[in-house]
Design a protein around this nucleic acid. Structure first.
Lengths: 161, 161
DNA sequence: GAGAGCGTACTCGGATAGGACTTGTCCGAGTGGGTAAGG
DNA sequence: CCTTACCCACTCGGACAAGTCCTATCCGAGTACGCTCTC
């Protein structure tokens, strides 16, 4: 049980788009070369971000992707849900209703939700809350705190300036 | 990205062993029948719990599994880590060090840990903390709160009493 | 010289294979109890 | 009747397949630019 590598790819790509600034789209090939990623697979992830409303895509020649809104308005949770989907970490199969134990139990026992599911859900809520409280702008600022020239280096690394 | 169903199986099985009480071992077949689970696959999960020190196994005829310690001393986190392993949810591949962007960056940029990894790690810490704060005894008590006769029904469902 | 039309190169988007992990199953090693023979 | 040795049924433990999801790749639809031809 672990997040796919698409999450890491997506976050770094969004950060790079933020450092580039400007409204002109950037092609997948450029973004992929920036971190030596598979262009085709990165493209698949970026399409997920477009569906989630985090990116805008420009088709055709000189096309690419650009941020749909500033990074201050994008949380880590937004990215994770866009890539991984919004299904819960823990899926309750309601096994409490099956088998020889359930046969003996009155129906009233199942009126309340499964307490195991509730416990797991509380933990997942804490995880989502922590992710939602961190915007990509926060992550960006933390990175720049000890490397003030980072933005200009990223622009040069992606062929800008 | 989701937890395996083994987690749900393990938690319910541990709760049932708690309700049974007593120190005599219970066979996998009985525990599996209680929730209509695959006995062989449940056995695999229970072996993980033995390795983690949550259960004790008794081999041979009249053997089975019994709790290694009371449920008050077992947290939800203990069970999740026993089944899923203690690897982090987010695995940082350090892609920041690769590609055309990294080539332009001075080595000092990588002195600090990756801020993306840090952000994901903070969220995971909140998740683990929430899991660690809930013991199986708490979950048990919550289940009994609205079904006081639950323990006796479980015992009957597993052929006791 | 200016403008319109066309061809070409480039990009996103979705459909298509490969690999890794989860899920599920099977059989062998080891143990305890029951049985029957012997004292 | 009590003791003892043997046999058998039962259980855990790990080795062995099937299914599903993640990972990776390729090709087609659509667009903007640049060139060429015409006026």
């Amino acid at each position: 049980m672990r997040t796919g590598k698409g999450v890491e790819w997506a976050v770094h790509t969004l950060l790079n788009l933020g450092w580039l600034g400007g409204g002109e789209p950037v092609a997948t090939a450029e973004l992929a070369a920036g971190h030596d990623l598979s262009p085709s697979y990165l493209n698949k992830q970026l399409q997920q971000l477009v569906k989630a409303g985090l990116l805008e895509s420009v088709p055709g020649a000189r096309g690419g992707f650009r941020l749909a809104r500033p990074l201050e308005a994008v949380s880590m949770l937004d990215v994770v849900l866009a890539i991984e989907g919004d299904e819960p970490l823990f899926r309750c199969a309601e096994i409490r209703r099956c088998g020889t134990i359930a046969e003996r139990l009155p129906d009233s026992s199942f009126a309340r939700p499964c307490t195991v599911n509730s416990a797991m859900h509380r933990a997942e809520a804490a995880w989502r809350k922590a992710l939602a409280e961190q915007s990509l702008a926060d992550v960006q600022a933390e990175a720049e705190a000890h490397a003030p020239t980072l933005a200009s280096h990223v622009r040069r690394g992606l062929g800008r300036d």
